[in-house]
């Protein structure tokens, strides 16, 4: 059983404090949903957890199983077991998905990767990091497992297999990019995943497929989830253990799934905020 503990987290972008004291405690297999209006600090919270350069944690702590993540670069946070599915996944011309996953798994010590039935530790050996194998377009020998897992995960959520051979997110639609994030999440198998608006850009069927896959991951390898969203619809298939309402950079209310239904009816007005009077602009 792993634990993601966020305590008293404050984070700034530029001179502006956007996250103003957030506490979260997520255990393996749990799904926490953070809902809030535009500009409430949802994306900044996600980036503060992952350690995006320019998003500065000014106070508080983020721990996975006691390891402090604040102060660590993103890649070390990832190796400690954290994953972020970006709201707007980045295009990286010429860099193939498979090469990226091979690099990601080389040296990745997440428990999901070591569990039986998954890629054997041999696939994560440092040998895979030799210059020849790092080249885009080169499927390095002995890494059939990564290719197979990509195909399997793509099929699970209806991500076109042809896209697996494309450079990262190049010429993919918004919805395809989101599915691509979920494919990567399920290949990497982190302890905890932060999903930043994973449902935006997806049609109803895609939201269902993605939600089901993530739901399955919570039992399959005990994935803990922090799903940041505006919308209730993600929760039709993804069973939330806790719902948190984020307004003005603070969690103003927490409860069970019934809280999401209530928000659906009442909006955020009850909490002194509307979509129009958030503290910043969308996407912060």
């Amino acid at each position: 059983m792993s634990h993601l503990e966020v305590q008293g987290l404050h984070a700034s972008v530029g001179a502006r404090e956007v996250v103003r004291g957030v506490d979260l405690h997520v255990a393996s297999g749990e799904v926490h949903v953070v809902m809030g209006p535009n500009g409430s600090g949802k994306s900044t919270l996600a980036h503060a957890l992952m350690g995006r350069p320019g998003t500065i944690v000014t106070e508080g702590s983020i721990r996975i199983d006691g390891t402090e993540l604040v102060g660590l670069p993103s890649w070390r946070r990832a190796r400690a077991g954290l994953f972020l599915a970006l709201q707007q996944p980045i295009e990286v011309p010429g860099v193939l998905l498979e090469a990226t996953m091979e690099e990601a798994l080389a040296g990745n010590a997440s428990p999901g990767n070591a569990s039986p039935g998954n890629a054997s530790p041999g696939n994560a050996s440092p040998g895979n990091a030799s210059p020849g194998n790092a080249s885009p377009g080169n499927a390095s020998p002995g890494n059939g497992a990564v290719a197979e897992r990509l195909v399997e995960e793509a099929a699970a959520i209806g991500f076109d297999e042809r896209f697996l051979r494309r450079p990262l997110n190049v010429d993919l639609s918004g919805g395809e990019r989101k599915r691509n994030e979920v494919v990567q999440l399920c290949v990497i198998r982190p302890k905890f995943a932060v999903l930043d608006e994973i449902d935006s850009g997806l049609d109803v069927d895609a939201v269902r497929a993605v939600s089901r896959r993530i739901e399955r991951a919570t039992s399959e390898w005990g994935l803990g989830v922090v799903a940041v969203t505006h919308f209730h619809r993600l929760l039709r298939e993804l069973r939330a253990d806790k719902v948190h309402v984020l307004v003005g950079g603070r969690i103003v209310s927490s409860g069970g799934p019934e809280l999401a239904e209530e928000l659906e009816r009442t909006g955020y007005g009850l909490y002194g905020a509307s979509d129009a009077d958030g503290i910043g602009t969308a996407g912060t």
């Binding site: 992952m50 995006r52 350069p53 670069p73 993103s74 890649w75 990832a78 190796r79 994953f83 972020l84 970006l86 996944p89 980045i90 990286v92 011309p93 010429g94 860099v95 193939l96 090469a99 990226t100 996953m101 690099e103 990601a104 040296g107 990745n108 990091a129 210059p131 790092a134 080249s135 885009p136 450079p167 990262l168 990567q184 990497i188």
Partner: peptide, 20 residues
């Protein structure tokens, strides 16, 4: 940042990006 968020260390991420 995108590649590093997948657990890829900076030097390797940069090499992937530049080769790409």
């Amino acid at each position: 940042y995108y590649l590093e968020s997948r657990g890829i260390p900076p030097a390797r991420a940069e090499r992937l990006i530049v080769l790409g």
